[in-house]
Write a protein that binds this DNA or RNA. Sequence first.
RNA 1: GCUCAGGUGGCGGAAUUGGUAGACGCGCUGGACUCAAAAUCCAGUGUCCCUUAAAGACGUGCGGGUUCGAUUCCCGCCCUGAGUACCA
Length: 923
Amino acid sequence: MEYNFKETEQKWQEYWREHGTYKVEIDPSKPKFYVLDMFPYPSGAGLHVGHPLGYIASDIYSRYKRLKGFNVLHPMGFDAYGLPAEQYAIQTGQHPAVTTEKNIARYREQLDKIGFSYDWDREVRTCDPHYYKWTQWAFIRMFEHYYDRTQQQARPISELTAHFAANGTEGVNAACSEELTFTAAEWNAKGEKEQQEVLMNYRIAYLRDTMVNWCPQLGTVLANDEVKDGLSVRGGYPVVQKTMRQWSLRVSAYAQRLLEGLEQLEWSDSLKDIQRNWIGRSQGADVTFDVKDSDVKLKIFTTRPDTIYGVSFMVLAPESEYVAQLTTPEQQAAVAEYLDYVAKRTERERQSEVKTVTGVFTGAYAINPFTEEAIPVWVSEYVLAGYGTGAIMAVPAHDSRDYAFAKKFNLPIVPVIDNGQPIDLSESSYDAKEGKMINSGIINGMEVKEAIAFIAGEVEKRGIGRSKINYRLRDAIFSRQRYWGEPFPVYYKEGMPYMMDDSKLPLELPEIDKYLPTESGEPPLGRAKNWKTEEGYPIELNTMPGFAGSSAYYLRYMDPHNDKALVGKEADEYWRNVDLYLGGAEHATGHLIYSRFWNMFLYDLGVVCEPEPFKKLINQGMIQGRSNFVYRVVGTNTYVSAGLKKDYETTEIHVDVNIVHNDILDIEAFRRWMPEYADADFILEDGKYVCGWAVEKMSKSMFNVVNPDDIIEQFGADTLRLYEMFLGPLEAHKPWDTQGIDGVYKFLRKFWRLFMPGDEFRVSESEPTREELKILHKTLKKVEGDIETFSFNTTIPAFMICTNELTALKCDKRAVLEPLVIAIAPYAPHIAEELWHRLGHTDSVTTATFPAWEEKYLVEDSFEYPVSFNGKVRFKLPMPVDASNADIETAVKTAPEAAKWLEGKTIRKVIIVPKKIVNVVVG
RNA sequence: GCUCAGGUGGCGGAAUUGGUAGACGCGCUGGACUCAAAAUCCAGUGUCCCUUAAAGACGUGCGGGUUCGAUUCCCGCCCUGAGUACCA
């Protein structure tokens, strides 16, 4: 009887649902294991075959861990707030909640068909008030805390106000937007509003005028990770810099901990690297320069204090406050003109024209504290306002950007480092941190490293600066001018923001009639009626960004129905954190940073017991599409086969991969596909039309989307699961090609036939042979080793070989077949469940124990005799250490084991192979 | 530019971490079964030389090196992909 996947898969999916097979509860008697997928945003297009790749891998691992005796938490949910639903709402008037609900239902339906072991009772949706109540709750906590650098943790803002009242800013070491200094008396003299303004400088969630990435087309601001190459990641619209009053999260306060925390994590090195670069720690020093004929102290940040004798000019960022302070009356007009030019440039222009050097002289001169020389102060857009102090000392001889600037404006280039060979400064600067100092007064002759430390110390001694660490990581802008997001639990009194009481949570998203900004330019929530507190205070009109809801969702899965806490103590202490997290690497600088920050904050508050949310992380690769092309002869409706196209001038046109088989076009289907092709002519080769192909992103516009539903319909879910794993290494990007799926489909049917040699299900209870046991244990060992290392792609061949070998032996022993059913269950749960029940079990295969393999069955026993192998004879011999080929030959000849097999034969070749085995080719 | 990952048959990819390169699958070729097709099964399939086979030579991006032995380690290039981009 052939395997009927359709009937079987449906039957067991229903069984699992009815029996609550995948429901999980806290069980202190078992070790826990938490396997998580990055939850999807349910888009209108539904899933394509690329999406489930990671889900299948994590499901295999979950099922395996369960068979290994772990209590496995494996939940799924939806990142339900997002731009597409809102855009759709703007166009159609359809409420985003309705669209989202519909898309989720579709996703759920598709996911269910694949046979995942999710505990759906724990599902979370970020747009559900029961869920976002806790997003709002966490935000309020961030508002109520500041970051104490001395204690290296978040502390209640009340501690800070108490300190201010007693000592002013004296002794305060808090993360802040700008360093403030005031006395206790000054603090106490301030009014409520003034005090609140000061505290805003310290709060972890704070409201402030900031330079933001404004995207006019989307009508909203974007975080740094939502912008790429000056364009919005979603939509690809231009982004400009603009000052706006926005909520921000003081992520930068956690920079050092985010950096150090990486050490403990089992993440790929490349992913850790991306985060390290994003955090961008750099060790240097602040140095203050006096300004000639002025009281202004010009503070700069440098990582190369050693080059201070080579400073030949200073540069300010155009947005720097110093510009106004330092510009001389004579230069006023020129500077104003330059600032105007800079303001008009978009972020994209600025980035694409990096090589173009621009700038203007302020007219001011700074005094080099070491040489006492007066050096000109310039303004240029190559210096960024947001990093360091927004001002630099320029050393053109040893910094390529300063070099380009000096060349353009004819400023002096003074070498201060000698690396042994003559340094040629006519073409480029010498940026390396190696060599001896020259032309450098007190540090002449020192090595660069020495000089850096010396000058840093000297600067500190003279009180004109101090060592400083800067981070590239910026605070996260947290306001979005959109409708479809979490409302802020914030109201305004006399223009100052106040948090709502926890008892008012969740603050539910109000209904509005249209989803566009208001006529006066307010965000969509400006349209909401009665959007005020009971006391009549107006409520915040912005909503939270996409990453708000996804930052702590893994905690909510632990205790999804708890109405009293984000996560209860018991649940948190049992499940702790995610043991295995699977998702795409594109979240490296967004979600994965924000989540770690959010979790560390909650850790500081004692809400969670682990400082890091995701212990081990695997980035599954993307499944790309494999597109097919036809070639239209220019100016005709004639299409030429790929092999002949070089003789014609052609246009390449995407053709639906679903009407192409093995790169051969189904001509009739093509004619039916679109009206314009109805009377197409073809130039064939060998009677066939051969299509071209290319690997591209899987997308509708390329006509290369493959829907998992179609694959399941044709081959079944187990085949889809196996094939997705078989395609290649989990972490690699790889194209989907349906052609190869036959192989695993055939394998499953062969596996089935092991139990069904005739028409009847039949296993024998007799003792297996040593050979059969060897095949079994070899396979079990391979499967276990592969799952533990996430090499799922090489497990499938192991199952195939095993099945072929057992088929050849006509093995029907229960003692061999039953363990194989358990071993394959994580990969192909439906067929395994069916066989398990046919084997006479009444419980689910998920409650079985993963069979242990034993070394004793794997020991090679045939090596005392030579085996014929590709015309070679193989011996087991101790491998001679440090032996030349000749020595090995001697060793072989004289070895007692070998003598009897070499009698009267000539050794033609000796090959040493692993495990001290020698291959001898005899003539 | 900098950082990281990678480059193996017609294709996807293996190779127990320095030990028989190309497992397994696809595709292709031939055969069995069939009136025929589908399905299934069997055999072959890196390149060159050759009627075929044996035997041989060459083969893991390119050029060197270490080693008895290198896809694996080292040095220098080339190419592809990803991240990042005036971060001082």
